[in-house]
Design a protein around this nucleic acid. Structure first.
Lengths: 222, 222
DNA sequence: ATGAAAATGAGTGGATCCACTCATTGTAAA
DNA sequence: TTTACAATGAGTGGATCCACTCATTTTCAT
């Protein structure tokens, strides 16, 4: 979670720049905007890990922004933090009950802000990575052994993860079924996998933990 | 998220029973314990969707309980709510910065409690269901067809999701391999699945989206 | 340019999965 | 009590997966 992307929505210019400076100083990427409209545009383009949002904004307020966030499926794993001067108990409860992940009231210290960000990132990291945990049937150490696979083997494993069967992969890569079968055997051997379905299970598990970009080390052109 | 399981840890007897009564009245299952030790025992046995925990407890305090929770992989998708009399700003920040999902201070109203619970459940529901989204290769509508499976078929699908092969499942359920094969065919037919590996792929995907408790509708004793 | 590793392909065999059909027994609801 | 459905088991056949061995060609680095 080093290069985490954080979207800041705050209309007071000084405060916005201050927040961006603090967060940027700790190694995170920051996008800061003054209005809800611009925030929504940004959210359509990219996928922030955290959104820090004031409540009192011109036109579209913070509640409305959060409502939009909840409607965007790609942001289900984005943490939302309210940062506002509205500090009564009913204010905070309202924000949290909407489903916010944290609620910071002004004035706040640099430490409070950065600690909140860190706590949410840590939680996101745990939830994203640990989805399938230890109770699976595949050897944990196998992940490190992936680097021992050759380019072609990685490509084949990638196709398996996409759900393609041996004959389908053979067609896609313009080789014979026998070749793919041999690759599968070699992959299974290197990963210490055994038994039917163990390879497809491993590949799918890999895909879950590594959704966007495919396998480590880029594969061959085709 | 109707039959959600909620674990309450509170040493004051009256308050604990009061909380359990409120939560139970809204249709959730509740387990309430007075100490951290008992809470840890419970967490090993089952997988709560939400843990509501006081901070000041005898022996093991709330912070310690939360630290234990974070170490248990199966509880990564469990929401943790502090409920405590410690209400200063530094108290609340400390709790949230540990990674808590909400922080309620005493005294609290029935509405505040139940709204907090509801907000966390809604968020959990969104995050659990939307994990893999559209990019998979299995028919979306199949999920709704799961309810058409019989008890035995659900049990078999559950075992497949756990990674067991046909002969292993047959042994576990004390029936012949032929019976399991027939169940697999019937399941595939009902879910409109076709081709090799499609069933194991579907089952694994299901497990990802539904980590803790197994399949909808409880399975037969054995 | 030669050797090592990678990629390709084939042969064989066994185990499993998938898809059909058919039959028997139990169970629960009409 | 009948009727419907669930659960069990078997037969057959084809496709795929898994595991071994062997051989040829290509690629790449020393």
């Amino acid at each position: 979670m080093d290069g985490a992307l954080i979207l800041v929505i705050e209309d007071e210019t000084l405060l916005r720049e201050n927040i961006a400076e603090i967060i940027g100083h700790f190694g995170f990427r920051v996008i800061s905007v003054p209005t809800g409209e611009e925030a929504i545009k940004v959210m359509k383009e990219c996928t922030p890990d955290i959104i820090i949002c004031d409540i009192m904004l011109p036109e579209i307020d913070g509640y409305e922004v959060f409502a939009r966030v909840k409607q965007m499926p790609k942001l289900t794993h984005t943490a939302f933090i309210f940062l506002t001067v509205k500090s009564t108990r009913s204010d905070t409860r309202a924000g949290m009950n909407m489903g916010a992940d944290d609620y910071l009231t002004k004035p706040f210290t640099k430490e409070e802000l950065i600690n909140s960000v860190r706590a949410r990132l840590e939680k996101l990291s745990i939830m994203r990575q640990g989805s399938l945990e230890k109770d699976m049937f595949v050897d944990e150490a196998a992940y490190e052994k992936i680097i021992n696979l050759t380019k072609r083997e990685r490509k084949v494993l990638d196709e398996i993860a996409e759900g393609y069967t041996t004959p389908q992969i053979a067609k896609k890569l313009f080789v014979s079924k026998k070749t793919i079968e041999n690759h599968r055997v070699n992959i299974s051997r290197k990963l210490n996998l055994t038994g039917p379905n163990s390879l497809i299970s491993f590949a799918l598990r890999l895909k879950v933990q590594n959704p966007s970009h495919h396998l480590p080390e880029k594969q061959v052109s085709n």
